[in-house]
Design a binder for these strands. Structure first.
Lengths: 209, 209
DNA sequence: TCCGATACTGAGCGGGCGCTTAGAGTGCCC
DNA sequence: GGGCACTCTAAGCGCCCGCTCAGTATCGGA
């Protein structure tokens, strides 16, 4: 677990690509509010208030409340995909790359739980067009993990009777971390990442390391 | 996978314990609406309309919209706990009981996805008192699964370095089925249950069956 | 010094929300 | 048959929602 290390860190400059500054502050405020209360329970007045602005200011930078969610979701999914791609294209064997992918993906969900929660659980709040775009990104996420598992099976390292089903389960396990992980809990994101990498290697029937 | 068979079926008479009939129709309508759109995006007018009643009729049977969610959540959690208890108190070894617990729990999440979605993902929409009551039920759910795993470790059937962490992962895997399972998809609840039982046995290091 | 562009605010519009109330319909016990 | 308890509806109250718009402050360039 080293190749994808730098991409799975604590969201180094989070949302740095969002400009200008006011637009980024609004977006960060929206992420926090959506994560705490959910998209539908969050008001535009709440988002603007958290960013220290009047409700009307939001509409200078974003056309609607939904556009905020769309932007958050797309950036988040692109980040998730980048993390998995980095791990999948690593140099080790399938077991090493799968462990790397799982541990960095889990660290992203646990460490950036606020963002991950919005990204993974507010998909249904998007309109049809935006949702379709995001679903395409999710298919790419699935393909990355499936690719590693297929490599392991082809190399004889893994014993996996149902590759698509196991891929689904591995991703499901990682994603659900965003639901239960507690920042004030006893486990650090790194500990959960290591535990989950071990569990996933067992799931694919990789021999003991 | 047989002892918990009858309790994990297709919600045989769903919500049969809710009376009178009008109250049950409203509750079933609320489950569907909450599952489709989420609690906050569902209006009381929508719930009443689905039940074929006027908006005011809802308030004869329930004090608030939140009371509906609370009732749904409590009944659902009690059912989930019953399913796991039945499996945990089965007669086989730890491996058999764990496989039974996972497969029946997964079948409940996949087959009754509508209900399970509300039960598992609308917890935060409850007020503090109701949430505390539900969290107590969830701790009992966790204890049942942890008990089976501990039995397996004590008997030397399982190899589990981190029992609480593995318990968390097993439950997480099952619960997340309610998020991704698609009724129109290619897999039946039974198939997913069997696949997941196998994956979980690998996670706990149980020997091949 | 003035100008236009940009970023923002205060006030508020139309509408839908959760929930209430007055009263009508219905069936059961005496 | 009369009274009552129960169930449900039509109407609507007060509130807050997403979003708009006229107007103000600020600032770089000529």
């Amino acid at each position: 677990m080293s190749t994808a290390e730098e991409t799975a860190g604590a969201e180094m400059p989070p949302w740095a690509e969002v400009t200008p500054d006011a637009a980024r502050r609004l977006l960060v405020a929206a992420v926090e509010a959506f994560a705490e209360r959910g998209y539908h329970a969050t008001t535009t007045r709440d988002i603007a208030g958290r960013a220290g602005m009047s409700p009307a200011a939001l509409y200078i930078h974003y056309k609607t409340k939904e556009e905020l969610l769309h932007r958050i979701s797309r950036i988040g999914h692109e980040k998730a995909l980048e993390i998995l791609r980095t791990a999948a294209q690593g140099e080790g064997g399938a077991a090493e790359r799968l462990a790397d992918a799982v541990s960095s993906f889990v660290r992203w969900h646990a460490g950036g739980r606020t963002t991950a929660r919005v990204v993974q659980y507010e998909l249904d709040s998007l309109g049809p067009d935006a949702r379709a775009e995001i679903i395409a990104l999710r298919r790419q996420v699935d393909a990355e993990v499936r690719g590693i598992i297929q490599d392991g099976v082809a190399a004889g390292d893994f014993d996996v009777p149902d590759v698509p089903g196991t891929t689904l389960a591995v991703l499901s396990l990682c994603i659900d971390v965003a639901r239960w992980f507690n920042v004030n809990g006893t486990r650090t994101p790194e500990e959960v990442g290591a535990l989950y990498a071990d569990l996933v290697l067992r799931m694919v029937g990789a021999g003991p390391r």
